[in-house]
Every structure is written in C-alpha cells, then in structure tokens.
Design a protein around this nucleic acid. Structure first.
Lengths: 128, 128
DNA sequence: CCTTGACCTTCCAGTGACTGGAACCCTTAT
DNA sequence: ATAAGGGTTCCAGTCACTGGAAGGTCAAGG
C-alpha cells in the first residue's frame, strides 16, 4: 500500500508518517520505483502510534511502548509504570491549567469589556 | 541594574530575558562596557510579561497585551476579548486532557502491573 | 504518443519559547 | 597577577511536526 492510502486508513498525515520513518518508528519496504510499500505490520504499528499519541504519550514513550508490545517477555508492571507516570504528568498539567482558568475567569468576569480604557485584567498583570 | 539582578528580582531566567530583548519585547539600555542596563520600566515590563506568561498567554498575546497596556486610548473590550479567547483555548485543552486522563485511568486500573506480559494497556493501543 | 493531474520522492527551513554550551570580555577582591 | 563570578555574542538543540520547492512516477484521456 502507498503512503497516501495509509494516511487515509490511519488518519495520520503523510508528512507525519514519513517523519516516523525518519526517526525509526517504522521501517516500510520500498517498491522498485522508490515508493514506500506498507505492509499490514506497518499499518498496525502506525495505528498503535496514533492511539498512543492521542493519549498524549511522547514519541519517546511511544517507542518504549512499542518495544514492550513486541517483547513477549515484558512485565505489565513496566507498561503500567509508564502509563502512570504519564497520567501524573497529565494531572499536573490539568491542575496548572485549572489554576490559570480560575484566575482568568475571575479577571474576565471583572472586566467591563466596553470602550473605556480601565481594565482589571491589565491592572492585575501590571500589579507590583 | 544588571541582568543577573533583574533575573533574581523578576524570577525570569537570564537566558529568557535576553531572548525577550532579541524578539523586541524589551529594550534595555547599554552601559559603556556593553552590559545591559535595566531601568524600572524594563523591570516593570518583565514582571508584566512574567505574569502574563504564567497565565499561559503566548508571546504574541503578551505583545498585544503590553501594547494595550501602553495605549491610553485602549478599549477594555479588546483586552477582554483576548483574555476570553485564551480562556477558551485553556478550556479546550483541559477537556482534551481530561479525556486522556479518563482513558488512562481506566487502563491503568485494569492493568495488573505484575511480572506477567498480559496487559490491557497494550491491548487497547493495539486494538483493531 | 503526449499531456494532465494526482501521486510519490528528497531536502531544507520554520514553528514556540526557550535552553545549553562555547568562546570570550569585564569587574572586583585577594 | 590571578581567580571567581559576573557579563557578552553566536550557534545548536529541543519537540513533533508542517510547509514548500524541485523533481520523479503512474494511470487515464485525447
């Protein structure tokens, strides 16, 4: 299968697929014309990558997850630890965003939003 | 004031301050020896930037916010719109992260996390 | 047979917001 | 005189793509 069809099937952009090959996440064969020739295995890997990325795993994590997936002797504890670490990072990020959200909500609420220059948002940002 | 002291007072790294000058957010004077000479105005601007960045505003937004701050004839509506747009982006991001969090939580919960290879996390990522 | 259009290829550069490091200059104290 | 601890510039790297240019390949239609 050619890259365009793979992109459609996996919903991963062509550019991204080429990038994943460049960094060694996949290793599609080549046709005699130089086109990448994707096998089921490659499609499967890309789908795996797509789902892992959708869960916010970094490329490094994806690499580790794929290695674990392909290792028959893996311990699920290793996978779980990876996922838990990532989960904690997500939780931290959410907490951070919620703090920003709370402050911004308050500032937006307090701002008249009219044609006058007086603005609590700018006052807050400029506060000593 | 020299850059090191400014960094301490504003809690913005030296490298970042130099970067902010490079992209034109601040314009400190120079001493005869070539050192940057920060005035109160620069400190004030950096503090403003620090707070805006802490609320998650992009550098572009910060530029716009500083311009509005310095514009006596601004309309608070412009500031409010900027803040509201940003707030929406934050809300979107939170929603996205919470969705990841929910899925990951479920997967982590389902994973034994022992020495056996069987793993619901990998099963999910590999699912057709 | 030729052209057209839709594919495919590689390579280079840019994104955002820094961050690290090398190589070098200035100042102050010993 | 020298050493420590500032400061300076410039270049490269981060992360995960994304855009664009220049060019090769293929199938269909005239």
């Amino acid at each position: 299968m050619n890259i365009g069809d793979v992109a459609k099937r996996t919903a991963i952009p062509v550019k991204t697929i080429r990038y994943y090959e460049e960094i060694g996440l996949i290793r599609p064969l080549r046709d005699t014309n130089g086109y990448r020739a994707f096998r089921d295995k490659d499609l499967h890997k890309l789908a795996f990558l797509g789902r892992a990325r959708a869960l916010g795993f970094s490329i490094g994590d994806c690499r580790a997850l794929m290695a674990l997936y392909e290792d028959e002797n893996r311990a699920s504890a290793d996978v779980k630890r990876l996922a838990q670490d990532h989960l904690h990072q997500i939780e931290d990020k959410i907490a951070q965003l919620r703090s920003m959200q709370a402050t911004l909500n308050e500032l937006v609420r307090a701002c008249a939003g009219d044609s006058r220059p007086d603005c609590p948002i700018l006052r807050d940002l400029a506060s000593e």
